[in-house]
Nucleic acid binder design. Structure first.
Lengths: 336, 336
DNA sequence: TTGTAAGCGTTATCAC
DNA sequence: GTGATAACGCTTACAA
């Protein structure tokens, strides 16, 4: 078996309480004993059992995170941001994947409760009332990241980029560049923050400029390359008057859309401009280089975990925090 | 506080032992009591404390994984494969990032020991003797995935794709397509499996066909887009006779290399063919569509976690297992 | 300052 | 079949 605090106590000829005090610096211990204990600890390479410790302290130094899919670069970057802070603070990260299914999300919330995590970061698709209730019933703090609750109530702390504003800015940018016929390839309709909110920003920008919003210019994909291709095809085939620009709600779909246009001998950006969202690394190496909206998911994760730590320490934090976005001008959008 | 086994016992008017038996199905309990206990458990929504359980059972149902960078799609896919199996088996995954630094890797091995994980999956860069020793000293089973130990000893179980053979096959494919002047953009020289082994496969294929291996045709990148660009630039500038094909050791660098060639008005594949490695999704949407070597990292992760489970259950498994690779023919390689 | 002993919430070993 | 009770390895009153 592993070496225990008792072994250390015996070998250092002190009580287990003293060893514990030395480990935790919890109470004064005479320098002499302290050294004796530390020497033995070093020598035997003793590490306190974190289960026993967690059992009594009700703190495990484990943070849970729930994401739809860890192989998605967006959630990868998010997780990396989170992990960077956790490691520095001596915490470890338990990663759970929900596939974006609400049932699974609820289940995972329970799994993490079982594991006695100190807090949870939650990235989902649609945080509706049922899910919010579920979250409120958990006895660990939760921070929503990447999306807000869809019931309009601000009861769970949230770190997010402003999707409405981001799309508004992006579409306004297209308008400033002379575009009037602007189509949208958006996210799933049931995706509150990345679907509905972005759609809202798109409409806002158009309406503000008195540009008509055309249903035939709006398609909903699922953020995959394939769906970008498919949505672009529909817009292309179902409109006799083509848009001069397409706002695509993530880079992967933007690449898919461009792929379709290339196949159809439509030149980007000469004939149609394409704007993406996220600013994944490959967009810079794509041809044409992708104009996009940069979201730093690393920073978003970082802010979220910092917020969670404050919550764990029972400090007060604003209910909602926004991460800035930035228009990245490259080649795929042309001024007309 | 949370409801405990004792609360359940009281409410069901039985002993804690009986409740425990019901929970674990460990010993026969009369149907009558069983029902009474289960009803109370249901009603109070009781979940046994996994820390207390872990403390006594010496099993936590937690698996650790150490990867260089979780935002790298390769490790993302790997992790997803692992997680898919873990979830199904009621295990959770603790994800640690090493940045590929050996010191950090050793530290994380210790962190996971602290957390009493039941086993660890390790994806690193150079698993040398020191690291192997460290691993052997851990009291949980470890499976190397994505790379083998670099000291030649097969003492840690390993799940990997055959890098030598994969490169051999890829370069042979180029040769079959008429290429003789084949350059290589490889991985870091200190990366045993993905660097040295792939280089070896490249050389083997050339030598077998009596094609001279030219130093000026070999560059080492770090698997990033940028380094692919940079390596391609060097090859382009430092050779008066250009290669007709470049074997690039991952897709990201391949895209970077193509980017450089485009910038230099060299057409791919008309002037130079480019072959990638990994088969990340975007390669299919890139233009020209990327010819590459497909590795299913999802499957690799899956096989690795299955192996680890066998080890945990003390079943015997082969020391090294190979995951198949496959040449994916697309546009970026031309027959000449 | 130090030690003794009572938990923390389980499982497992005994008796009955 | 069922129930006390002793672990598991630690922290923390409470005493000394």
């Amino acid at each position: 078996m592993s070496v225990t605090i008792e072994d250390i106590a015996k070998e250092a000829r002190v009580s287990v309480a003293t060893v514990s005090r030395v480990i935790n610096n919890s109470k004064a211990v005479s320098p002499e004993l302290k050294k004796r204990v530390n020497d033995v600890i070093e020598k035997r390479n003793f590490k306190p059992n974190s289960l026993a410790r967690g059992l009594i302290m009700k703190r495990t130094n484990i943070i849970g995170i729930i994401v739809p899919d860890i192989s998605n670069p967006v959630f990868g970057a998010l997780t990396r941001g989170i992990n960077s802070f956790c490691q520095q603070k001596g915490y470890t990260l338990m990663v759970c994947e929900s596939g974006g299914h609400q049932e699974k999300e609820v289940e995972l919330l329970g799994v993490l409760a079982d594991k006695k995590v100190d807090g949870v970061l939650f990235a989902g698709v649609d945080v509706n009332s049922a899910l919010v209730e579920e979250m409120k019933s958990m006895r660990y703090p939760i921070v929503l990241v990447t999306q807000e609750a869809s019931n309009g109530e601000e009861v769970i702390h949230t770190v997010i980029h402003d999707n409405v504003k981001a799309l508004y800015d992006a579409v306004s940018f297209l308008i400033e560049n002379g575009h009037q016929r602007i189509a949208l390839i958006g996210g799933p309709e049931n995706d509150y923050s990345s679907g509905q909110k972005r759609l809202k920003g798109y409409k806002q920008a158009l309406e503000e400029q008195k540009i008509e919003v055309l249903d035939s210019y709006i398609e909903h994909g699922d953020f995959s390359f394939e769906s970008g291709y498919e949505c672009m095809r529909k817009i292309y085939e179902e409109n006799s008057v083509l848009p001069t620009a397409v706002m695509v709600c993530n880079d992967a779909m933007a690449i898919g859309a461009i792929r379709f246009l290339k196949t159809s001998k439509v030149s980007v950006p000469a004939d149609i401009s394409i704007m993406g969202f996220d600013d994944l690394e490959f967009g810079r190496y794509f041809s044409p280089e992708l104009t996009t909206v940069r979201i730093s998911y690393f920073d978003e994760g970082l802010r979220a975990i910092k917020t969670l730590f404050k919550l764990i320490q029972e400090q007060s934090v604003p209910m909602t925090q926004f991460i800035p976005h930035k228009i990245i001008r490259r080649i795929s959008v042309k001024k007309i």
